[in-house]
């Protein structure tokens, strides 16, 4: 069977190889025109400084929101990863609700905005860019699940992201929480019920910061390299085929070898 297949391929090599050449050329053009989007994970606050220890910031109720203010790097933020503590429970059906609000950009620096928000932050009057939920039963205790934002890329610029939960009838009696520490993140701040929370660390007051990753994306051209190289590989191979016309010509020549 394998031999028959081999014979057939050899027989039709004069068709197969040029077609493959053209397909690779088409793949090269297509790959260039339709890039593939890749998610990039950026570690923002995952390590504790000396003397600091991570702890769990519990989510105590639907009204009790944990918030985070940040500015994107010019690209749209495609998602967020935060550490979920389930305190050993399964929390099947319990949902983490996350909302993204756009903060008004009046041309001032992000540091100035955060300074201004030190007094507190209200979501009333802010434009809500998206609201989504994540089933906490699907992640492991202590894991940093990916919380996707939107595909269109509206989460851009200065953002206020809030997290709360909805138990949806789950009666395990355990509160989920978010991992946090006291590390300072440039041009960002964490909030609880709209207020910055500070705690004593090493004799000084330090703000609490949730541990997290940012998820951005960029375009790649995964088949571009292959297609452009393979186009010429198949072209080279096509040049070793004895095409039917050439065969006929040779057969017509009495002295042909």
């Amino acid at each position: 069977m394998l031999d028959n297949l081999k014979k057939m391929i050899y027989k039709y090599a004069y068709l197969i190889l040029p077609i493959c050449t053209l397909l690779c050329l088409a793949g090269f053009i297509g790959s260039y025109l339709f890039p593939n989007e890749v998610l990039d994970t950026y570690e923002v606050n995952m390590k504790e400084e000396e003397g600091d220890e991570e702890f769990v910031w519990p989510l105590t109720g639907a009204e009790d929101e944990i918030g985070y203010v940040m500015e994107t790097d010019g690209r749209a933020l495609k998602g967020f990863q935060i550490g979920i503590s389930k305190n050993g429970a399964a929390l099947t059906g319990t949902e983490l609700i996350y909302r993204v609000y756009g903060l008004p950009d009046e041309g001032e620096s992000m540091e100035a905005v955060i300074e201004k928000l030190n007094a507190g932050i209200e979501t009333d009057g802010l434009e809500m860019l998206l609201e989504k939920s994540y089933d906490l039963g699907t992640c492991l205790d202590g894991q940093y699940p990916y919380l996707p934002f939107d595909e269109e890329g509206v989460c851009k610029g200065r953002l206020y992201i809030t997290f709360t939960y909805q138990n949806n009838g789950n009666d395990e009696g355990v509160l989920p929480g978010i991992y946090a520490n006291h590390h300072k993140v440039e041009r960002a701040a964490s909030y609880r019920e709209g207020e910055i929370v500070t705690e004593m660390m090493g004799g000084e007051e330090a703000p609490v910061m949730i541990k997290h990753y940012y998820i951005y994306s960029h375009d790649t051209y995964p088949l571009l390299y292959d297609c452009r190289v393979l186009t010429f590989v198949f072209l080279a191979a096509s040049m070793t085929v004895c095409y039917p016309k050439m065969k006929k010509k040779k057969e017509g020549m009495p002295d042909a070898a």
């Binding site: 593939n36 890749v38 990039d40 994970t41 492991l140 940093y144 990916y146």
Partner: peptide, 10 residues
């Protein structure tokens, strides 16, 4: 728990 990361499907 395992750490979660992302990569291109291709």
């Amino acid at each position: 728990p395992p750490d979660i990361g992302h990569q291109s499907r291709f």
